[in-house]
Design a protein around this nucleic acid. Structure first.
Lengths: 209, 209
DNA sequence: ATTTAACTCACTCATTTGGGTGAGTTGAAG
DNA sequence: CTTCAACTCACCCAAATGAGTGAGTTAAAT
């Protein structure tokens, strides 16, 4: 019942089959489906609703980067762990933006990988140590660029994160209450969120500030 | 001008002096002061206002755990990197609670350490890979210990962070709207905040979840 | 010179939120 | 057996929020 359900996307048949075998013979894990490409990733996760998706980056056809994007669009709360041999910073960055929840190198021993699966299911962000730093570096690039927040909007967002109310933001920035709220609304639109709380989460988690 | 200023606390004289020498002969770093104990850590950081503090954990007299606490009380925005040989989970945990910003093992090569210093100065959270997981595990222990959140309250807080409204939280947890709000109010009280936005910030920044 | 983006401000409206107060149930610890 | 913490639910109210719409100003880019 509380076993973690998975769907795998991995073009290397031997590796994939090994993983499926290992996972299905490990208590607490059950592989619902596995694919050698992620062309149908969206429908796959919609059908199986797995707790966790293990996604290779380098696959023929659609790349894992597109894969994670599709998964996240289809089922936003499905945890996705990228599983790759390469430590390509650009791809890493793209995957982050696409919403991947973890990054494990293929050289990771199975035990660690299983821990990572458990961890990501628990809301963690497992990453192979060697790419952890890269991840931080990638995030530095983001710093709002992604959402095209204006300088003023960043000011507002920063205060919002401090827990300031619209009124407080207005007085802090010496602008009118309505202007502050106007900025907030624009921020929400740009961040694709519907309220301040979501904006704060997104900003803090994605390290926009 | 843009060189990173440091203050060191390390009881091993040879190691400390080596570090001071290395840092002062590396572009971008300047050691303002170094101590073989952290008894006067508070006044030291108040006087020197360093960008970064490098703090050993195992020192005679006051431990580095108390050291980081003092530093953080005196100068909350000073970045503190713990620098230790041991991977003691309990001490690690204590340091986390005390507000340390990074954890580097002494076996870390100088280059990596310097990167870490730069990183922590830039707002990152550098950690030796081997303790990164421990940190995550430690954080699991925290899970409210600090604020004595009940399991249910943690459930609610988790959803709050996802941007859920009271109504959504209620339906997600299959409780009434008022119960959800009741939990929220209790959470706010325990976290010493006045609104959900502050709660989200606090929870994410202090990694309560 | 004109377009454009950023910033500014205002008004309305339905909904949500935080705060306060009070209270019933349950399960575990003493 | 009772004490207590955790969880549950309800009602009230003032304030804050999000959403939508519209518009004036300024400074930079074309």
């Amino acid at each position: 019942m509380n076993s973690i359900s998975l769907v795998l996307f991995e073009d290397n048949d031997r590796l994939r089959e090994s993983l499926v075998f290992l996972l299905n013979n490990t208590e607490g894990f059950s592989v619902l489906a596995d694919y050698n490409n992620c062309n149908d990733a969206a429908s796959a996760v919609r059908i199986y609703k797995p707790d966790v998706v293990l996604m290779d980056i380098d696959m023929p056809g659609k790349t894992g980067v597109e894969g994670v994007r599709m998964v996240k669009e289809a089922m936003p709360f499905t945890a996705v762990i990228m599983f790759t041999v390469f430590e390509d910073e650009d791809k890493l960055f793209e995957c982050l933006c696409a919403g991947a929840n973890g990054y494990m190198l293929k050289k990771t021993p199975p035990g660690k990988l299983f821990e990572a699966i458990q961890e990501v299911k628990d809301g963690g962000a497992p990453m192979s140590p060697s790419i952890a730093r890269k991840v931080l570096n990638s995030f530095k690039h983001i710093r709002s660029t992604q959402y095209n927040l204006t300088p003023r909007e960043l000011d507002v967002l920063q205060l919002l994160i401090k827990g300031y109310s619209s009124k407080m933001i207005a007085s802090e920035l010496t602008i009118s209450f309505d202007t502050a709220r106007s900025h907030l609304k624009n921020i929400y639109t740009k961040l694709h969120v519907n309220c301040g709380k979501e904006a704060i989460s997104k900003a803090l988690i994605e390290r926009i500030l």
